[in-house]
Nucleic acid binder design. Structure first.
Lengths: 235, 235
DNA sequence: ACCTGAACACCGTTCAAGT
DNA sequence: ACCTGAACACCGTTCAAGT
């Protein structure tokens, strides 16, 4: 009758064994290509030619997967830094490295703060703390100062992630997006938003990355001013 | 004839007319009571004794609702501040007000950066910009300085939101949670995380709010150091 | 141990139909 | 204009069954 047709054979078994690493890599590719919402379990099974259970055998749940992907990116970034630089320059390199990593993987920006006990955030704190000590920041001022830097970096990271989300919808590119925001600010009611109204004009030609680094320098200047070594260690 | 039997009557009409305001208020109550995941359209229809369409008639979608609830909280906070304070103190009050608002409504912490064109963030930028001008920060340094403060505040806000999410699961309270984190840090491998290992001991008795304010002061010190009025306005 | 995929318990959103 | 609620098109996660 009609059963000549190929009977619905099972999907062929994967040739390469599955592992958390392989899954995390595939998830990262999906996230980079299409944004956070594109990471669905369904999309992963298709890309990896496997079933749901196989994935859940290596990974606790979707959050665990997002966290592992973030740890991977941040960890690689932090350990990849030159270790012999002058401390102030090392701190700037670390900050810029984080900025660039999050610029390349914006979904990771929100993820770092989402599960604060994960290696991604621990690595950042650790690295910043170490550099601050090299900068002669007094021991008792290190945790607080590191906290300020970390929170500033996470704030910028979150904004970058939000911008990327906004860009993912349309096919507008980054500079067109900035121009739109600038125009919108310039058109804000000058009575309610006089400050932003003025700033709108300057927003168009500002460099996120440069601005970010200026912020890091500003905070470092604050740390040095407030915690000048020896400032209140002597009577 | 036979219509004596109660026919499955429709749900009674709401007595009070629906409005965006009423919906936003109900959403805020759900969010405060049970966290971000508790805000489902279904839960809203139950609480408001209405249907899905009624809600979508006043609100674009779930994101719009979250954004409007955040705008409401931040807007009320910003406009509620005393307007006659000394500028430095005004800046500290604003920062503390934001901290407390986000502490009371942690879900708003992540929301502020999520849609950066919404009034919540604009109000914050505007207010900070105004105060910085009163502080005699030179005009061209205002946008950058405001950006540093805003990003720091958003970073802390995001962390608070993450902590609240972690607390929502179990019934652990805040100090127990901090103690857990402190213990975990203290137990970290001292070889990989020497800096955190040391900090773990101090984490237990630190006051988030106080630490946050110290961070604001540190950044203000940085702004004053880097942009001392007249510093490079004169030749 | 490792994997498959149907089934379950949810979501946000739409829309023809009601008042 | 304002509202109702069944229906649609998705989700993440589980689990009996396979190898």
């Amino acid at each position: 009758m009609e059963l000549m047709a190929t009977k619905p054979r099972r999907a062929p078994r994967r040739t390469q064994a599955l592992s958390k690493d392989v899954i995390v890599r595939a998830a990262t590719e999906l996230l980079d290509a299409e944004g956070e919402n594109a990471l669905t379990l369904r999309a992963l099974t298709v890309r990896l030619a496997t079933g749901y259970g196989a994935i859940y055998h290596h990974v606790a749940d979707r959050d665990d997967l997002l966290g592992a992907a973030t740890d991977d990116i941040i960890g690689r970034m932090v350990t990849g830094l030159a270790t012999d630089a002058e401390p102030r320059q090392a701190l700037r390199s670390l900050a810029l490295g984080l900025f660039d990593a999050i610029d390349a993987h914006p979904w990771a920006g929100t993820q770092i703060s989402r599960e604060p006990w994960r290696p991604a955030l621990l690595d950042i704190y650790e690295s910043i703390g170490r550099h601050l000590r090299s900068l002669q920041v007094p021991e008792r001022a290190v945790p607080g100062s590191a906290g300020v830097l970390v929170n500033y970096i996470l704030g910028v990271a979150g904004q970058n992630a939000a911008n990327a989300r906004a860009l993912a919808d349309g096919k507008t590119d980054r500079s067109a997006f900035l121009a739109t925001v600038a125009t919108r600010w310039a058109h804000l009611d000058p009575a309610r938003y006089p400050s932003l109204h003025k700033a709108g004009a300057h927003l168009r030609d500002h460099d996120d990355r440069e601005q970010f680094l200026a912020g890091v320098d500003l905070i470092l200047a604050g740390i040095e001013t407030v915690h000048r070594p020896g400032k209140d260690d002597l009577p």
